[in-house]
Design a protein around this nucleic acid. Sequence first.
RNA 1: GCCCGGGUGGUGAAACCGGUAGACACGGGGGACUUAAAAUCCCCUUCCUUUGGAGUGCGGGUUCGAGUCCCGCCCCGGGCACCA
Length: 657
Amino acid sequence: MYKRQLEDLEGLDWPAHVLEIQRNWVGRSEGARVSFGVQDHAEASIEVFTTRPDTLYGATYMVLAPEHPLVEVITTQAQQAEVQAYVKQTSLRTERDRQAASAEGLKTGVDTGAQAVHPLTGQPIGVFIADYVLMGYGTGAIMAVPAHDERDHAFAKAKSLPIVQVVAPLRGDAVDVQEAAFVGLGKAVNSPSIDGLPTAEAKAKMIAHLVERDIGVGTINYKLRDWLFSRQRYWGEPFPLAYAEDGTVSPIAESDLPVELPKVPDYDPSEDGEAPLARAEAWRELPGGLKREVNTMPQWAGSCWYYLRFADPQNADVPWAEDIERYWLPVDLYVGGVEHAATHLLYSRFWHKVLFDLGKVHTREPFKRLFNQGMILGATFVPPDKRRDEDGKKVAFLPDQVDTSEDAQGNDVYTVKATGEKVEIHWDKMSKSKGNVVNPDEVVAQFGADAIRVYEMFMGPLEQSAPWQTTGLAGTHRFLQRVHRLVWDDDGNVRDLPSGEGSPRQRKLLHKTISEVTERTDRMGFNTAIASMMVFVRDVQTADEPIGTSAAEQFALLLAPYAPHLAEEIWSALGHAETLSYEPWPAADESLLVDDSFMLVLQVGGKRRGELEVPKSASKAELEALARGSEVVQKWLGDKEPKRVIVVPGRLVNFVV
RNA sequence: GCCCGGGUGGUGAAACCGGUAGACACGGGGGACUUAAAAUCCCCUUCCUUUGGAGUGCGGGUUCGAGUCCCGCCCCGGGCACCA
């Protein structure tokens, strides 16, 4: 499953960095598993995972995670107390604590007193426990090679353990592994069976050797991020589970499903700290002394498969019908934020694969194409010294506390109204705690839902984060008002518009606009699609030729995805009783898209010196002749003969001098 | 530390396959209309020492021609991180 989780990423049309994040999380690593015996415990063996089997001869001690089951078994009498204390201490520290301390290179741990047996040399080596080894990864135990691993090196230094070099650089100076670990690739040394081999070959030969002697095996290790599937809050699907007095768990009978959320007096945790559902006491009690589980599922319980239910939302018998799944799935385009790259998207893919194996869905992957839209950023203003207040919070001001002006160079300058202090503008993800949020309800009330929608699409490429600027919104609002005035007069009456697509000039522009908006919408270049509509509107309005009815209809259809309310209003004003939603998308008349002339750029010596309107049908030779004859070229070329002439039809002529 | 993005006017940005850098907007300046204002409309708006020159983070390179391609840096944003 892990393997497929990784391999199936290949065929997906997803942003590269999301694929990268997923690969990180699946965390494939190649290496070997090796068994170490333990002295005086013939029954026990310590399994380790290593990506560097070639360094096996350099293993001078071993480390178990404090939670490792063998810790109890092998710890010697003399070390019992110390080991137990350490295990207890780590269990009390939070994950965050453990990682923060380690980030500073601090390595703690204690000796179990036990001796492991090196599988190749037969030498005894010490066994420690330390919290830098994680129970959740690999086997929860490592062979420590302090000469070639920084973490092991730090630990060995702290505990004065031997450091033995088994890899040397291929070229360059010798390294001193007593000083610092050498983690790079090189050639094996001090390793009888593989001496002199470069790392890659040394690994392969060592694995073969381990297999032969039956003490290890080559393996590939994966991990899947552990995501807690239980929450102590009200809003979430209840688990269909019940507990008996003795703690045994049983499922709720299928006939009693689904388990619905009960009414509770309030949504806070119960007095004795149990989840909110514990407050629904009557609901909790079941016949036979059984008690319901009161934790609920997390949000992602639903997000892992909601796209399937969305295909068949009214079905009361099954989650989704097979033929409907076959018709709608997989999801063609999934627009969502990058914040879901590691968790939601990893787990919904995982569930989908389980469903695929069960034959419940017909594709291996749920989302064919993924698109990450950017965030809208909000402004805060910070003093240049980035000072903090008494509570240690960064000092920041909000837009309404700040004046904007321009300096002599035209750069924006921000000053705090109350104090006159100069501050710098800072764009961040909008968040309540920062206070840099914009309330969409207020914006909608002032400018309308269409204006905010168009503005958000106009701000820049969809995948890019962009700063929220209310003045920019006013601009799109003005655009929509201009559109409105094409169809209604100042008194709010629908204009008496001529039929058809307007003058030949207007008609040509209309079809150019249809073509551009279609192409740009298609490749999600929404900001440029809007720009193209702006050009159309400005031109029609400036030319003072009223827009033709048919042109207005087609324009309304183009506008509909961007400003649906206004588009429907126009559609209705033009005499349609039904919504435009079921109308076909307008088609551009290709014959109107071609011009019979174009502006030829004239270059001399690679520099643009002028332009010339020329017929589109002109041949290369004709273009050169036309360019050569032009005044600008005459002037810049003088009596020199160009070394070469580059003619790019439809674009330019360049005289190389 | 490793891995991804990204640096273009005062601001958000555009530029398809290497072919007019700055479309479309915001802001600013000027004008028209108005008793006046708002609204609306029009013009100008990269910079400079202007017969012209420079310019897409910096330094090189390839090319007739580079925002776009190549090499080396700098800066910003994001992700991951005792993963053995």
